[in-house]
Design a protein around this nucleic acid. Structure first.
Lengths: 330, 330
DNA sequence: CTGTTAGCGCATTCAT
DNA sequence: ATGAATGCGCTAACAG
C-alpha cells in the first residue's frame, strides 16, 4: 500500500492541496464542512503528514543530536531519560550517536549531524577531546550547542553539569567529619576536565583539614579495569576510607573490598559520586552524592530548546543541584 | 553566517546547480577541473549536503526508530550500543523514543514515527501491550518492524530475542545439578510474554527433575520495589537457591540476602539471567546466563537493515546465542 | 472561504 | 561535459 499525501486527498475531493493543508491544520479560514470531509478521508486512508517535507519547507529540521562518548550503564541511561522527558511533546526529536570516546569519530559525527540539519546539539566530549575547534561550523551557523557532564571550557558554549570540584569536596569532607584521616581517592581518566576538578575538590578538602597527602592518595584509571582496581585496593591497608569519583569505580572498588572480606564501613568507609543506582543495591547502601543523569539531561535539553527557540545566544553555565545521601557505608 | 547550498556554489562559479551536484557526487561525466573548483568552494564555505532534502527528493528518510519501554540501566544501554554499532556507517540514523511502558504512549510514538517517514522500526513493547494492531499501518505501508527482547507473537513481524524458555531452564537446571531442590524463582511483570516463557522454563526444569512445586515457588513483581523484594526474601528460609529472571530483580535480591547476613552460595545459591554487568561487580560473582543487549541490538538492526534494503519480507525469528557463565554464587 | 503559484535543496531526466 | 527543467510533500503569500 502506498502512503497518501495531501495531493491525493485533494484529488479525491476535487479541491486544492492548500485547502487540504489548511483543513488539516485547522486553519480558521476553512469551512467546517470541508474540514470534516478532509479529515474523514485522511483518517480513512491513514494520512500522516510528512515531517521531513514540512520541516524542509519551513527550513527547520526538528532534530537535535546527542553525542555521547558511550552509552554506559550508569550515567547515560538516566541522562537519555531526562532528555526524552523534556523532548516529549516539544515537536523536536533526538538522534543519538556515540563517539566511542574517540575524537576522530566525534568529529565525523558532528559533520554528519550538520548534514542532518540539526537545530541543536547536546555533547559530552570524548576523553581525547582537548579543545572544541570541531564545533566551529556549528558556532558559525548559529546552531546552539550545550556541553553536558564532561565539558571543556570554551567561552562560546553553554554547559550543564554538576559542580565537580565542590561535589567531591563535600564527599571528601563527609569522610573527614566521620573521623577519617587516611583517605584515598579513585579517579577516572585524568585528561578529562571532570576528573581534574573532582581531583581538585578531593585535595582541597584534605588541605582544608590539614591532612597530609601525596600522589599515593590519588589513583587514576584511564579505563576501569576491575583486576587493576582490585590489586590497588589490596594495597590500601593503611587507609580507612575511600572516595570514588564515579559509579564505574565504585562498583569495582566495592567488589574488591568484599572479596578481601573487609567490612564496610568498619574496615573501609566508602563514599562516591553516583547516579544513585549502585549505591542502592550494593550492600551496605553507599553514602554518595547523587549526580542525577536525569536532571542533567532534562536541564540541558531545556536550555538547548530555549536557545533554539529564542535565539538565546547568551552563554550559560548551569550547575545542576546535587544531594548528599547518607548510606551505611560511612 | 548562513549555510551554503548547491545553488550558492553554482552561482559563485557561474555553472549550473546540476553540475555542482554531480561534481560533489563524483559523477564521471564531470571534468576533473570543474570537480576541483567545486570542491574547493564547498570546502571553503563549509558546504554540507542537506540530508533531509536529499532523502526527501529520493523518497527515503534514512531514519529508523527505536521505541523502548524505558531506557533502563541494565539492558537498554548495551542494546543501544549494539544498534549504534551496526548503524555506524550504514547511512541510516536512529531516532530514539521511550514509551514509558505505556500502551497509549507507544501508539502515539508509532504514529509520530510514521510522520518522520521512518524506514524501519525496532520495537520493544510496553508491559501493557497485548497485541499489535497499532502496527497495522506500518505493515500496510511495508515498513519493516523488528520486535526485540520483549516481543509479542504476531505472524507479520520478525523478532530477535533470546530463547527465554530454554534460557531459564538451563539456569534452573544449573541450580538443580548443584544439588538444589528447594528453589524459588523471581519474575517480573507477569503479563509480558518474556516473563511467561521464563516462568515456563523454570517450571519445566523443576518438572524434568521431578521437583515438586506450587505457586509459592514463583514470585512475580510488576514493578521491582526493593522493599517488597527484601520482605519476600526474608521468608525464604526453607529455600536453598534463588533464580532471578533479570538484573533488576537480581540486584535487589542480592541486596536482600546481604542485608540478612546470609552468605552466598552457602545459605542461598543465586543464579540470574543478566546482561552480564551486575554479576561482575556483585560479590561473589553471580552465575548467570548472559543475555547480551549488545548482541540483540546488533542482530536486530542487521536484520532490520536487510529488510529495508532488500524488501526482504520473510518473517524471521532469531534467537540470540546465550552463554552460561559460572560465578561463585552457585 | 478557496485556488494558484512558488519554492525550500537536491538529484535526475532530457536536452545540447 | 554541462545546463534547463522537473518534482519529491508541504505551506505560505497572494489573489480572488
Amino acid at each position: 500500500m502506498k502512503r497518501i499525501t495531501i495531493k491525493d486527498i485533494a484529488k479525491m475531493l476535487n479541491i486544492s492541496a492548500s485547502t487540504v493543508s489548511r483543513a488539516l491544520g485547522d486553519h480558521p479560514d476553512v469551512s467546517a464542512h470541508t474540514k470534516k470531509r478532509v479529515k474523514e478521508i485522511a483518517q480513512k486512508f491513514k494520512y500522516k503528514p510528512n515531517l521531513q517535507a514540512r520541516y524542509f519547507r519551513n527550513k527547520h529540521s526538528g532534530l537535535i543530536a546527542i553525542i555521547l562518548p558511550q552509552i554506559n550503564k550508569f550515567f547515560s541511561a538516566d541522562f537519555l531519560e531526562g532528555v526524552n522527558a523534556e523532548l516529549f511533546g516539544s515537536s523536536y526529536s533526538s538522534i543519538l550517536f556515540q563517539s566511542g570516546n574517540q575524537l576522530n569519530q566525534e568529529k565525523q559525527l558532528i559533520d554528519y549531524c550538520q548534514s542532518w540539519a540539526i537545530e541543536g546539539l547536546l555533547l559530552s566530549v570524548s576523553g581525547q577531546t582537548a579543545q572544541l575547534d570541531h564545533l566551529n561550523t556549528l558556532y558559525d551557523f548559529d546552531i546552539p550547542v550545550v556541553l553536558v557532564d564532561r565539558v571543556i571550557d570554551d567561552k562560546r558554549f553553554s554547559t550543564v553539569r554538576i559542580d565537580d570540584k565542590k561535589t567531591s569536596m563535600i564527599a571528601t569532607e563527609h569522610l573527614i567529619k566521620k573521623g577519617h584521616q587516611k583517605i584515598v581517592g579513585f579517579f577516572g581518566n585524568p585528561s578529562l576536565q571532570m576528573t581534574k576538578q573532582r581531583h581538585e575538590g578531593f585535595i582541597a578538602a584534605l588541605d582544608k583539614y590539614n591532612i597530609k597527602h601525596n600522589e599515593e592518595n590519588c589513583l587514576f584509571f584511564t579505563e576501569t579495569k576491575q583486576l587493576e582496581i582490585i590489586a590497588k585496593v589490596k594495597e590500601l591497608e593503611n587507609y580507612s576510607a575511600i572516595f570514588c569519583m564515579s559509579d564505574e569505580l565504585l562498583v569495582d572498588v566495592h567488589y574488591a573490598i568484599q572479596s578481601l572480606s573487609w567490612s564496610i564501613p568498619t574496615d573501609k568507609a566508602l563514599v562516591s559520586i553516583s547516579d544513585g543506582n549502585p549505591p542502592n543495591y550494593l550492600y551496605p547502601r553507599i553514602s554518595h552524592i547523587k549526580h542525577s543523569g536525569f536532571d542533567v539531561g532534562k536541564t540541558a535539553t531545556h536550555l538547548l530548546l530555549s536557545k533554539i527557540r529564542s535565539q538565546n545566544l547568551k552563554v550559560e553555565h548551569v550547575k545542576v543541584q546535587v544531594d548528599m545521601i547518607d548510606g551505611a557505608s560511612t
